[in-house]
């Protein structure tokens, strides 16, 4: 490093390499991404948002919601579950005895404790998940044995990970395809509040969303979210109360003769929140929808 030009070349090559790797290459790989198809369906994914929801993303951006909320679900792996859906001619007790008789199978040795635990205190309620394993062989062995004795069962793909299992925020991991129509993409980096990838599935009621935005503590007692009162209008009740007026508990209501109605921004933001769904299986993020188990 004796001359200015050698420093320049070193810095240019170093930054140029990472620019090619982390800016150019992802742009080439993902920049032309198109809608994908939902697994085992002809539906396209993702769907375009409605006009209100598209505007709502801008309210979300302007209010900096992403400072506290993420829109990404993590997944550590995929397991397959065997769920018993019908016992056929069997009684719960002799079915249990049959399952225990399978414990000598070499493929099931590792799982005996887990299977025994899943039958603990079971009196024949269905459906009952018998076995969860990441090993496809083990799962099909179990499914085949059950089929052989005439017990109905289903195998389901269940993504694993704290966000999905412990927190119940989603069905599967978030993937690049989910964000195709987001301008700007609001992934967020801090979870001072819960993840919102599936808030449209978890809390599908716009009234709840409004109430939560106006007075978070009125619906979630432990909430640390600040109120977004400025997205609402407090006004005297007219001849006929507004159908959209918030139904607030007495502690949070503005006072007699007054009603709280959402401003357009609040409507848009709630529409955007309700549009947040990542509830369909994709090729790169498969899972078996819960509705399949009757």
């Amino acid at each position: 490093m004796k001359t200015g030009i050698s420093i320049f070349i070193a810095a240019f090559v170093a930054l140029g390499a990472s620019w090619c790797g982390l800016v150019l290459a992802p742009s080439l790989q993902l920049g032309g991404a198109k809608e994908t198809v939902v697994l085992q369906s002809a539906d396209h994914w993702p769907q375009q948002r409605t006009g209100d929801a598209t505007l709502g993303l801008q309210v979300y951006r302007a209010s900096g919601c992403a400072a506290c909320h993420t829109e990404q679900i993590r997944q550590t792996g995929v397991a397959t579950e065997v769920t018993v859906t019908g016992l056929g001619a069997h009684q719960p007790d002799d079915f249990g005895a049959f399952v225990k008789s399978l414990f000598i199978l070499p493929t099931l040795v590792e799982y005996t404790n887990a299977i025994a635990a899943s039958l603990q205190g079971w009196h024949g309620e269905l459906p009952r998940t018998l076995l969860t394993s990441a090993n496809q062989q083990v799962v099909s062995e179990m499914a085949n044995r059950l089929k052989a004795i005439g017990v109905k069962s289903e195998t389901r793909i269940v993504p694993q990970g704290d966000d999905i299992i412990a927190r119940g925020w989603g069905y599967r991991q978030s993937v690049a395809a989910d964000y195709l129509y987001d301008q700007p993409v609001q992934l967020g980096g801090l979870r001072a509040g819960p993840d919102l990838s599936n808030i449209g599935v978890r809390m599908p009621d716009a009234n709840w969303q409004w109430q939560h935005l106006y007075a978070p503590k009125s619906v979630v007692k432990t909430s640390t979210m600040p109120s977004f009162k400025f997205l609402f209008e407090v006004r005297p009740v007219g001849h006929v109360p507004s159908p959209d007026a918030l139904k607030l508990a007495a502690d949070f209501a503005p006072g007699p003769g007054l009603e709280v109605v959402p401003k357009p921004e609040a409507r848009q933001l709630a529409a955007y929140l309700l549009s947040l769904k990542a509830n369909v299986p994709l090729y790169e993020a498969p899972f078996t929808p819960v509705t399949a188990v009757k």
């Binding site: 620019w19 992802p26 742009s27 993902l30 920049g31 195709l180 993409v185």
Partner: peptide, 23 residues
């Protein structure tokens, strides 16, 4: 790079945005 790509009228599609942001 970041401003031309992210603070313009035509944003790159989907997750390319946060990737450039992280970079």
């Amino acid at each position: 790079t970041a401003n031309l790509l992210l603070v313009s009228h035509t944003l790159p599609r989907g997750v390319v945005q946060p990737v450039i942001g992280w970079w």
